[in-house]
Amino acid sequence: MQLFLPLIIGILFSAGFYLLLRRNLLKVILGIALVAHAANLLIFTMGGLKTTRPPIIAESKKMIEGLVTDPLPQALILTAIVIGFGVQVFALILARRLYQQTGISDINAVKNSDVNTEQVEKDGSL
């Protein structure tokens, strides 16, 4: 696990940033999702990796004994996953709406809001 997880995180980050730099709207959003997953896994590893040591108090005891897995990062990423899921779904719907309204799927063509109003009206693309 010590070697495996950093590798996975690295692959996810590089794949995510590669996709973020693509021009296709959908790929960019997939890139966001991959980067978010990589970030979540990174938080997970920051709690330290221990197997078969759940942070549960045995029935007869009053306190946790010995070294156990840190439960906080897991609680954090659970929150982050849920938030990330909601926001990514919103981004997907927005991309679909953008495609429906303008027929654009190339991110370089998304520039109407970047130029002056007058120019857009002259081009007739508004």
């Binding site: 709207l25 309204q101 303008t102 109407n112 809001s113 508004l126």
Partner: peptide, 8 residues
């Protein structure tokens, strides 16, 4: 459509 672009 401009709003969608800006928001995106």
């Amino acid at each position: 459509s401009r709003q969608t672009e800006g928001a995106f």
